[in-house]
Amino acid sequence: MTQGLITRARICAGGRSTPARRVEDTMSLSRKDMLGIRDLSREEIVLILDTAESFKEISDRTIKKVPTLRGKTVITLFFEASTRTRTSFEIAAKRLSADTINISASASSVVKGETLIDTARNLESMHPDIIVIRHSAAGAAHILAGLLEQSIINAGDGAHEHPTQALLDMLTIREKKGKIEGLRVAIVGDIAHSRVARSNIYGLTKMGAQVVVCGPAMMIPRDIERMGVTVRRTMNDAIRDADVVMMLRMQLERQQENLFPSLREYAQQFSLNRDNIKRAKDDVIVMHPGPINRGVEITPEIADGPHSVILEQVTNGVAVRMALLYLLSGGSK
């Protein structure tokens, strides 16, 4: 279902103001939905990153708006709390002149009342063009993609995937390091419950990075080596000579009660601090998908320090989401 054909919006693409005309090729994203990085080829990732790069400049203009998606409707459907991602999608859509509607629903009211499928069918009846969904259940975006003819963008489904986060992370790494291939990237934290980790592992390994993961052993999911990563037992081993250290949020809300003793213990054993960061390369960049737990997985001086690119990730998030909305609407670079 992820290999859908994109035909619908292609006819609208001609004659629009495309943001960057510097490249002649007409490669486009030939898929209806963006459900996960696992589905993407390396070429598609490069296309999205290149497109995002060319969109960045719009956000620096005085008039931060282009008419590219005028007349398109984007619905963000969030069943889980989110500030960054929802706002980022909304700003991205608005800068492209799309109309945006935000729907926040708690998953619990969905359990009690209307089903996800009924909600989706009702939204479909209002003829939006793109639906962005976040849901606590893995596979929720897949349900919509299989059901609706609209483009579906997965803004996070359970612990499964969060493709736009991985794309903005890769854009940030590429900007800072000039490349992704060959870099040593350490992802540290609760890998088992992290959709950010999964999407980044898919993306970074496809782009040729060497990915190391680390966390308390009960948070390292079974057979993860088969995803092409190396598992390190200790934080010190994981971040040694790293070009990039990506710290994950300790997601207590997704965990069983008996999984880990305390945040205090976690902070002592698995936080990135000014001592252990010395083991990484001198020019290491420190990333975090947010929201950060200051003093838990990352100390404030690292989060705010010279290696941190956390806020630039957020800036790049808007560009990546603009690129995706554009490409899924039939735009080609």
Partner: peptide, 17 residues
């Protein structure tokens, strides 16, 4: 809390095993 067999596929799908 498990939803499927714990193994490589559950790891990829992010479903508790």
């Amino acid at each position: 809390g498990g939803l499927m067999h714990e193994g490589f596929v559950s790891t990829q799908l992010g479903l508790p095993g």
